[in-house]
Write a protein that binds this DNA or RNA. Structure first.
Lengths: 256, 256
DNA sequence: GAGTGGTCTAGACCACCAC
DNA sequence: TGGTGGTCTAGACCACTCT
């Protein structure tokens, strides 16, 4: 795996080494979870300084291909399977079968999944959620905060904000909201859901977001701010921070 | 702007310098297009080695906050204004007023914009476009390839693929497709548009994509693969590569 | 020619991990 | 204890830009 560096090339040595290792990853010579050659191994294999070897490894890390563990080595990052979110994933027919939207998505993809509870209880509504709910920023709402993990990969961290008069006294206040998820409970309260709006954006993740999704520092996250609309009011806002490489979103637009 | 480095802190010195400069950018002490302190200035200001100063600058560059010009300096990158793409942006009523979808978007945002022609003519359909058009990969279609720039910022590069029987002999084959854009021409051909589907994903940009959008190496791009559906066939596929920080997508989903 | 960023080397100290 | 990654220094050569 060595010595194929061309010092006369235009391409920098550290890039050539990175290219080499990247090819090894793409071609499966290094599989997910495998350890890459150590820095000192790269130093002797390519006869470069340690700084140069490290720069090569830094390139791969910044591309999200690898992660390092202090004192152990540099390892190939596995890629989560792509989940496709269909535009009908909130259709009432799915809820009628006792399934939540997330269950529907995961079953469609044929994946095992878990939901990790993070927070459940009263809390202040952040400005953007409050605005969509017609409340004041900081006003108290019911908050459901959880992380979704599939096949060992963290996929998304979601936080739902529900007005107190909608959530109070219902199973929404428990971790298991019952068959059909919280939207089924909301409708049982007499708030017939009419439509959902989703605001999709991509931005650099904060440290805590990247941490929760096991993404490298500097990576971008995919954010969906979803609002559930009943007849004449918004009854829930869900702020979802997602691993972008784990999702593909599918929408239908009318030609109207 | 100097000397506030705490060598006893847990945070690495290069991170502290990066934090410092980042704050300066966020607080407007360095504005878009301004030159940051040079490497040698950082070396003397913070009394660190040049390598450490460079690492600090590398952090900012990887965050997309700065770009460097060899022999000139490191400059603050401007951020394009965010454009909000509404779910009704392909509504027929906009076309009736002689406006293309892009015109509608830009007017809503109140931005000056230009369209740069890149390619116009016959070409092979890539696999994903062909599949959605019901063609074989590589089959000849009409290709419209252009770049959209607003206020000096490249926003997106879009490539449309139109089956030959739809495009032939129409103004679609010219750079200016006429009032209402190509969708108006397609409907004049008797293909009444029923709906659009959009497949949204985020992935690392290729070098040419990042180049076209003036994004730093390693950045992610936002991709929308849009298919225009007439009564019983797809009549256009548009592959759009976008600067993620320049867009916010807005969709409506039925509760059905 | 002076100043800038781009690359590379050689050597050092530290913290963490596994044996 | 030896190997691993994380940080930092001092010094070098190069290519590019501006004057």
């Amino acid at each position: 795996m060595s010595g194929t560096i061309d010092p006369t090339s235009d391409r920098a040595v550290y890039q050539q080494i990175a290219d080499h290792l990247r090819d090894g990853i793409r071609q499966g010579r290094y599989g997910a979870g495998d350890r890459l050659p150590s820095e000192s191994e790269l130093v002797s294999a390519y006869t470069v300084s340690r700084v140069t070897a490290r720069r090569a490894l830094a390139v791969l890390a910044s591309e999200g291909l690898t992660y390092s563990e202090h004192g152990r080595g540099v390892f190939v990052r596995g890629r989560p399977p792509v989940r496709r979110l269909a535009s009908d994933r909130f259709a009432r027919r799915h809820r009628r079968q006792g399934k939540s939207a997330f269950d529907v998505e995961m079953e469609t993809a044929g994946l095992k999944h878990e939901v990790e509870p993070l927070k459940l209880g009263l809390g202040p509504a952040p400005a953007d959620a409050a605005e969509r709910l017609g409340l004041h920023a900081g006003q108290e709402v019911f908050v459901r905060h959880r992380r979704y993990v599939a096949e060992g990969y963290p996929l998304e961290v979601a936080t739902s904000y529900i007005p107190l008069d909608v959530a109070s006294g219902t199973q929404i206040e428990e971790w298991n909201p019952g068959p059909g998820g919280i939207y089924a409970r909301i409708e049982e309260q007499g708030h017939k859901l009419q439509r959902f709006t989703e605001e999709v954006s991509v931005r650099p993740g904060t440290n805590s977001e990247l941490n929760a999704l096991s993404l490298p520092t500097g990576a971008s996250i995919l954010r969906i701010l979803r609002t559930a609309h009943a007849k004449d009011r918004a009854v829930e806002v869900c702020d979802t921070i997602m691993n972008p490489s784990a999702f593909e979103l599918y929408y239908e637009l009318p030609a109207r």
